[in-house]
């Protein structure tokens, strides 16, 4: 999948959770990606992060980092 599109979609998710008054935005973003993104989409955004993660907003970058660290010991 084109990384620009995934980055755009992930940043949209990020803007919502970052605007919530309480809670851990990166955790909520990572949870949303886990629940609704098919594994190949998650793999693609993790790969994009590993390439430098251009365009990812800070909380989204943190969320994708969590996915990446999980993928170390299980399939993302």
């Amino acid at each position: 999948m084109p990384p620009e599109k995934l980055v755009h979609m992930a940043n949209q998710i990020g803007k919502f959770f970052a605007s919530q008054p309480r809670g851990d935005a990166p955790a909520a973003i990572a949870d949303h990606l886990r629940k609704f993104w098919d594994p190949r989409m998650r793999r693609a955004i993790v790969a994009h992060l590993e390439q430098g993660g251009a365009g990812l907003d800070p909380p989204v970058r943190a969320a994708v980092q969590r996915l990446a660290s999980e993928s170390g010991h299980q399939t993302v």
Binding site: M1, P2, K5, K35, F36, W37, D38, P39, R40, M41, T75
Partner: peptide, 16 residues
């Protein structure tokens, strides 16, 4: 146990 592709994702996945 993993979520699958949504309709718009299917088109993107088809193209890749």
């Amino acid at each position: 146990p993993e979520p699958g592709l949504r309709i718009p994702n299917m088109f993107d996945a088809a193209l890749d």
